[in-house]
Design a binder for these strands. Structure first.
Length: 461
DNA sequence: AGGCCCTTCGC
DNA sequence: CGAAGGGCC
């Protein structure tokens, strides 16, 4: 009896063992499994992973390798220019006849996967969405561009596929091919800007599980009201786990989604936004760099490196904006409400392009995800699908008073303002003696708002 | 998933 | 003279 040829299971944005369709299918086949991860930053088009994401990736891979070792397996690391070449080499070295992977939906990934499938015996499985893009379309067969009907359509489909349980065990090859060393990939920063990251995150599968359970036990019931308060832990904080696939949306849907309470439905709605963004990038593959609404291609954005830098460093003089930008820099994450406010400020008050904002988020967020990032910034810029109309300009002072009324979030991230009263913390320039170390507002919001509306008028049809 | 400004209405 | 509601950007 000859043993079947081994199967390469190619891990990508699915760094987990549970609900992993490719791994499960390989395990069920009785062939031996060689798990591989390929690091090909140059093949990933215009969007190689950012610095904060690389930090997370390092830890997630280390953890995945450990979990695989507990099963008697090994994670094989290879790096190079082209994943096709690396997979070809691995097939030759190991005698593997099949490569299994879970699908990705970004334009670059689709091109690469298609190229690999024509050259090698690859088999792909459903990726990290509740419903894959081809499973959802409008009456006329096209993609949805508005969230509400998309959400309705998903509700009518009912439960997404059941998550697959983790395979208990599977066959291993007698010898594994050589692996590169994770340390040599130098994913961790050279200068220690990540010093606080481990205080805020546990970037492992156990960390994902713990955070999900914490959220389901303590926060989800009040999600609808608490999710907008940046000083409270009312959001799920699961985004990086989703991005790296340490959690599967199907798993989370089934753990959170069968409860009819307000909080659960509100949370599932957010999971659907995630699918919505992914299907948009899938159907409109240029929207990582180009506005979905064409008339915005001629929008008169300002090139203003000094202003951009003040925004990036949290030195705009608007407390809520600066708190958010500093939270981002320190922890690799920012509360969703604050993301909307800082984005509106960059795009509308400073008239700096949403692409410049997206690039900064891409490099600094541990949850940076091409579909979510592109969609979110186009939404803020008013040029995307179901976007906030451009004339909807967030007032950074009102948003601050409304969502951080006691200034708790501001005091946490902008220590210069800690001693101000609640009455002055949102507008420190009105305080009797404004802190000398905190900058004056870099723009007057009322004037900036008028300027933004004038700019909008200039591109109107 | 806004906000500004004006009107109206209640006190 | 503040709150509430609507038109508009």
């Amino acid at each position: 009896m000859s043993t079947p040829a081994p199967i390469l299971v190619w891990f990508r944005n699915d760094l987990r063992l549970h609900d992993h369709p490719a791994l499960r299918a390989a395990a069920d086949s009785n062939a031996s499994i060689i798990p591989v991860y390929l690091h090909c930053p140059e093949s990933e088009g215009a969007w190689p992973q950012g610095s904060a994401s690389n930090w997370w990736l390092h830890h997630a891979l280390q953890d995945l390798a450990t979990q695989l070792e507990k099963k008697g397996s090994q994670l094989i690391l290879r790096s190079g220019k082209d994943p096709l070449v690396l997979l070809q080499n691995l097939c030759q070295e190991t005698g593997a006849h099949h490569i299994y992977w879970n699908r990705r939906y970004e334009p670059e990934a689709i091109q690469t996967d298609t190229r690999i499938k024509t050259a090698l015996p690859g088999k792909s499985f459903p990726g990290d969405m509740l419903w894959e893009p081809h499973a959802v379309h409008t009456q006329s067969g096209g993609p949805y561009k508005v969230f509400s009907p998309y959400y309705k359509a998903l509700q009518q489909k009912g439960e997404p596929p059941e998550p697959l349980p983790e395979a208990r065990s599977w066959q291993h090859p007698q010898t594994f091919p050589p692996s590169e060393s994770l340390t040599q990939w130098a994913l961790l920063p050279q200068t220690p800007w990540d010093s606080a990251f481990l205080d805020h995150w546990t970037p492992t599968l156990q960390g994902a599980k713990t955070q999900l359970n914490l959220f389901l036990d303590e926060s989800v019931a009040h999600y609808k009201t608490l999710r907008d308060s940046p000083s409270k832990s009312g959001t799920s904080r699961l985004s990086p786990y989703f991005h790296f696939g340490q959690l599967s949306p199907r798993t989370v849907w089934h753990e959170a989604g069968n409860d009819e309470s307000n909080g659960h439905e509100a949370y599932i709605r957010q999971l659907v936004w995630r699918d919505f963004a992914k299907q948009l990038l899938f159907h409109f593959p240029h929207t990582d760099t180009q506005p979905l609404q064409e008339k915005y291609a001629s929008f008169p954005w300002l090139k203003n490196p000094d202003a951009l830098k003040k925004w990036q460093q949290g030195q705009t003089g608007y407390p809520l904006i600066d708190a958010g930008m500093r939270e981002l820099w320190t922890t690799g994450w920012m509360h969703n409400r604050v993301r909307m406010v800082v984005a509106s400020f960059l795009v509308k008050d400073l008239l700096i392009s949403w692409q410049a904002g997206a690039a900064w988020f891409w490099d600094t967020l541990v949850d940076a995800d091409l579909a979510n990032n592109s969609f979110g910034w186009q939404w803020a810029g008013g040029c995307g699908a179901d976007a906030a109309p451009y004339f909807r300009v967030f007032n950074p002072i009102l948003q601050s008073k409304k969502f951080d009324p006691q200034g708790t979030y501001i005091r946490k991230w902008v220590p210069e303002l800690r001693s101000l009263s609640d009455a002055h913390i949102h507008e420190p320039w009105n305080a009797p003696s404004p802190p000398a170390t905190y900058p004056a507002p870099m723009v007057n919001h009322a004037e900036a708002r008028d300027r933004a509306l004038d700019a909008l008028a200039s591109i109107k049809k």
